[in-house]
Design a protein around this nucleic acid. Structure first.
Lengths: 159, 159
DNA sequence: ATACGAGCTCAACTATGGTCGAGGTCAAGC
DNA sequence: GCTTGACCTCGACCATAGTTGAGCTCGTAT
């Protein structure tokens, strides 16, 4: 029960090679990310190339890519043999773009926040950070706009 | 029941001013982020300055700052009146640093991934992205290192 | 015979940030 | 007197990414 043919691995072997826990592997299988045949005792037998998929999952995890995105990528990959080097290049470039986008989103937030630090109005209507989509715009001229940030301060300095 | 004194707001008024749902406000109250007194009918009466706290929560949400971090910040803020402009500057600068750190973390990942795109070995032992903490290092000289990325490719080109 | 190790399933639980619905209370309007 | 609107509590549920534990089946070793 311990041994397995050359190109097939038990779950224990997969765990030792990848460092991924059994429960996580079960979870990935339930999600359709990996696949294993079964032996007579209903135990999982992993094809060796499944290790590549698991590596990609670990990689995605490190990059903060959700498993749903990994699933999308895997849908474009061969299921019965290891992905090619070209496959890896395609996937990793796509994930690099993901990272780039996330970085740019953060940079935008940084810029907005830098403006807001000086401003400090925290107006629900005027502040881009608080109301990026102008959600509160259509609600009529009610008292939507916040007062100056600090009531006490306004009273002290201007009241 | 609709009207409320000058510096006190019903939950409905808070919702209209902030765009935050009642369930979210209940949730924030349970988490200790905001606080409301009650009238005779057990309905929440929010002090006007509570709007500032809610604005900060919305801001944090936009920035991807978890509520637990917001709670830590709120622990350093006055509970009975609005935070001052100086408070806002302190908080927003701290959050800007957070964003900076997140951006730098992403930049590091981008750099690592760029190296990995060219490499493509996906070795559990050698790849920094797959094994940043050398977790698999102490497990003896077993077959931990992955083969070249594509079995079929290695067979074709070198087998 | 019996224990041990490896593996199995299934359900419940973790944290985060809420949403949704059931069922109840209260005041005002018709 | 009855509905409507605003509000309340409480429990269940969503997704994400798993972990943990109970209880079961195997094959092997003693």
């Amino acid at each position: 029960m311990h041994a397995s043919p050359d190109d097939h691995l038990t779950i224990g072997e997969v765990i030792r090679r990848t460092g991924v826990s059994a429960s996580a592997l079960h979870f990935y299988e339930r999600k359709g990310l990996i696949y294993a045949e079964r032996n007579g005792c209903d135990q999982r037998i992993f094809a060796r190339h499944m290790i590549r998929r698991i590596s990609l999952i670990i990689m995605a995890k490190r990059l903060g890519i959700p498993l749903s995105d990994v699933a999308k990528v895997f849908a474009t990959l061969p299921f019965d043999h290891a992905p090619t080097h070209a496959d890896w290049q395609r996937v990793s470039r796509a994930w690099k773009k993901e990272l780039e986008e996330r970085r740019r989103a953060i940079e935008n937030l940084e810029n907005e926040l830098t403006g807001c630090i000086g401003c400090g109005c925290l107006s629900m209507k005027a502040c881009l950070l608080l109301n990026p989509d102008d959600t509160l715009q259509g609600r009529g001229p009610g008292p939507v706009r916040l007062q100056e940030f600090s009531d006490s301060r306004s009273r002290r300095t201007r009241g």
